[in-house]
């Protein structure tokens, strides 16, 4: 976010925001149009392709079997990973995961994990020896901003779409070619609202151009009950505590509509 280099754009977007309008004609708290497709990939246990305006994300779930961690011998494991592949934007680079992609993975992971979305105690095959391991991978195809909110929707849609593979008791192997009718034990549906702040103006669902110049952002994960399950502040700017409380209130409102996409 080099604001000196983009001072004209920043000035323009902030003037519009002061009139409660965005570059694409939206109001500050409008989301772009969301569409969700699920069950589109045959190799994944569950999959989803989600669009938010021009931003597009693919998410897939793979379920395998492995040894449990010593501190939870009867608990399955969940891992969320995201990769900012250079296919989705000129700004992404090949190579080891960037700090931005690690942050995205971890924020989505936290929202799912901390809300207790998956009941890992139900993912035990044989206590102390074998448990189900659930991997969720989030892959942006086109980045026009707000990968956090849409990444979580994609991950949740793929998890809800997933079916368990068959476990062969005799060979103690997972048969990846045969899926059962069983779904994952899902208890919760967290969604996330990410707010941007530019010259004191607050808005949601930022585009790539807005992300280029905004001062700070706050992502808030909201559970079905309206509780908060994850937060992450980003950007080199600041937010006040009253702004934060306003954002939480707004997130609680907006989360209801977002959850309709699951």
């Amino acid at each position: 976010m080099n604001n000196k280099e983009n001072s004209n754009l920043k000035d323009y977007l902030s003037k519009l925001l002061k009139k409660k309008i965005r570059e694409d004609g939206r109001k500050p708290f409008d989301y772009r149009k969301i569409s969700v497709e699920t069950g589109i990939l045959s190799q994944a246990n569950g999959s989803a392709r989600v669009k938010l305006g021009d931003t597009e994300v693919l998410a897939g779930v793979k379920i395998g079997a492995g040894t449990p961690y010593p501190d939870g011998p009867a608990d399955g494991t969940l891992m969320v990973n995201s990769e900012l592949s250079p296919i989705a934007s000129d700004r992404f680079e090949s190579g080891p995961p960037s700090p931005a992609s690690i942050e995205l993975s971890r924020v989505i992971d936290r929202a799912i994990r901390e809300s207790g979305t998956i009941d890992v105690s139900k993912l035990c095959i044989k206590s102390g020896e074998k448990v189900w391991m659930v991997f969720v991978d989030v892959y942006p195809i086109n980045d026009d901003g707000n990968l956090f909110d849409i990444g979580l929707i994609a991950a949740m849609a793929a998890l809800k779409n997933a079916r368990m593979p068959k476990y062969d008791e005799k060979t103690e192997q997972v048969n990846h070619r045969e899926l059962t009718k069983d779904k994952l034990p899902i208890n919760e549906e967290p969604v996330m609202c990410t707010f941007g702040k530019l010259d004191g103006e607050i808005f949601v669902d930022s585009t790539e151009r807005e992300e280029l110049v905004m001062d700070s952002r706050l992502s808030i994960g909201i559970t079905k009950k309206g509780n908060i399950c994850a937060m992450q502040k980003g950007g080199e700017g600041t937010i006040t505590s009253s702004e934060m409380m306003d954002m939480i209130k707004k997130a609680q409102e907006l989360s209801k509509d977002l959850r309709k996409n699951l």
């Binding site: 323009y12 003037k15 519009l16 009139k19 309008i21 570059e23 004609g25």
Partner: peptide, 9 residues
């Protein structure tokens, strides 16, 4: 007027 700029873009 930023709105005029927006309309032109």
């Amino acid at each position: 007027d930023p709105e005029k700029q927006m309309l032109m873009s």
